[in-house]
Design a protein around this nucleic acid. Structure first.
Lengths: 229, 229
DNA sequence: ATTACTACTAAACGAGTAC
DNA sequence: TGTACTCGTTTAGTAGTAA
């Protein structure tokens, strides 16, 4: 059974549910199902056999038609689809945003900020990792990336509180948990951005990204911002 | 474009939405989409072309990948799927239940009750039709039908109030709106059922069902009970 | 890098039909 | 009436590759 084309079966399963088979054993003839699905009786029959083999439905054949009940396993599939959709339709923001930028060497100011203990404690607590004392600077090159990045401002973010010590004030920092190059969990941080311009982003991670991902200036890096769990 | 297999596209559309394309223009390469969907780059490309042709997405090709935004039309398709599922998952009862029974001739008591003015006024008001003064008796023959019918008791029903006149008391009646033989809107009524046994149901409709559907004793009749709008 | 064409393969489907 | 088999047809998917 190719798991690849499971969606066809999922759709058939949905129709069966619409006929009540998710709550009770429903009598559904292959011919009736076929009409509802806009397919032939033979195909409907095959789908039922395949759903049965998958364990998504329990099927009993009678002379008047099939008695069909969707199994817990089948219900789970529908629930999964439902929660995916629910999440999409009800969520205020898209689940993830991907940015790409070119690595460049900054002024090293990132390290200075990151390593401030008052910030660091919050990073550990709120992001779940102890950031490497330094930031990866990325220059956004396309209009798309700059525009997308600017839209991030409206997204929910993890807020790192600012503080004041004897010498000066350190402002609040907004963090967007992100995955760098599909490999490393880290975060995009926003407050320091103003040091450059809107087309620059800074990324932190628990590891030294340049070394860990073998990055050099000019390399293109993908950052996937996770806007919701 | 065959509308028949549209939901292959629906699934691709769902994935695109999961990448945020339902809210913003998202940069998604065919190769990336292909990996997420477990298909080849070529197939992903074709799907995007087809979705574009359907008007479900707006596609702009750039050297770095496609810029994709799901159109209102596409959103509508996802919403439809969502509301279908929502309805299924959140509803307390299955959307419809189908019973089959054999026509038989009763004692004519049905007509006596139905035509009582106190009942009739409520039928018109609550069911939306003036019932033909008589009931169609159906004998349920299979275990499935009897069992399904018994489960109806737990379902929400339209309640017709009982009343008392100078001679006797007329009890309350439960009505389940139904479609008879896929053609006539009527209702299954429950209170009178006790006159026979659990394997008998009585059906009312605005027309004389025996004549309208050319029914004779022994004919098999399908009754689809609508448990929700 | 991309997208997407052409040519081919694999899968899904439906007609006919057995039971 | 039902289901579901075989088998030829249609459709979807992939590989190779051009642009």
């Amino acid at each position: 059974m190719t798991e690849r084309h499971a969606w066809r079966h999922l759709f058939t399963l949905l129709k069966l549910a619409e006929m009540g088979a998710h709550r009770r054993t429903a009598k559904i003839s292959t011919e009736y199902l076929a009409r509802k699905l806009g397919m032939s009786q033979q195909t409907a029959s095959r789908h039922l056999i395949e759903l049965d083999n998958k364990g998504w439905i329990k099927r009993t054949i009678t002379p008047e038609g099939c008695l069909i009940k969707i199994t817990d396993s089948g219900i789970k599939k529908l629930k999964k689809l439902y929660s995916n959709l629910h999440f999409l339709m009800e969520a205020a923001y898209p689940p993830s945003v991907t940015l790409e930028g070119i690595v460049f060497t900054g002024l090293g100011e990132g390290a200075y900020y990151i390593s401030k203990e008052r910030y660091r404690k919050q990073f550990i607590e709120k992001l779940g990792f102890d950031p490497y004392p330094g930031t990866l600077n990325l220059k956004l090159t396309t209009d798309y990336d700059v525009k997308t990045c600017s839209e991030l401002e409206a997204y929910p973010a993890i807020e790192i509180e600012g503080f004041t010590n004897e010498n000066r004030t350190f402002g609040p920092v907004k963090c967007y948990p992100a995955i760098i190059e599909n490999k490393v969990k880290g975060a995009l941080i926003s407050a320091l951005r103003s040091h450059y311009d809107a087309s620059v982003i800074e990324v932190i991670a628990p590891v030294f990204l340049r070394k860990h991902l073998k990055l050099k200036d000019g390399h293109k890096v993908k950052v996937e911002i996770l806007t919701l769990p």
